[in-house]
Amino acid sequence: MNPTEIAALLKEKFDDRIVESKPEAICPASVVDAAAIIDVCRFLRSGEGLDFDHLELLGGADYKDRIEVVYVMTSLRHGHRYTLKCRLPRENPSIKSVETIWAAANWHEREAFDMFGITFEGHSDLRRILCPDDWEGYPLRKDYKTPTRYRDMPV
């Protein structure tokens, strides 16, 4: 299935919960209402002819006025790929975890939590993964200030 067909299918099924779609872009993507992410992902995972069984990438991006969560997924059976994006507020960003749909999301979500402070509701083990547990701040946010000291050690 090509990106235009996938975008049309999503629009037909979820209507106004798909905020915008850009199937012609270099990275074909749809922006999804954050509240509907579980339903959309479940549909893409098991929908007929879709079978997105492989979550390739889940990550955040800080756009100064919002935090975006990016999901890149592929179907190994059909060979097609699609991207979903969710926009969250910068203050206490929170979204439902897709861990139950793809086991791969577990570590990816922990990384997004570690780097951007995005809370994934329903995650089984939401801890920092790359930084130490007592690290302060979220390093990949644009307004992050590198601390000068960590546990009395100069950084």
Partner: peptide, 20 residues
């Protein structure tokens, strides 16, 4: 301005770069 996702086959598997 825009974003891209590109993957290639590394010896250890699929290496993907998402660049904005």
């Amino acid at each position: 301005a825009g974003d891209v996702y590109m993957r290639s086959e590394c010896p250890r598997g699929e290496l993907g770069f998402y660049i904005v």
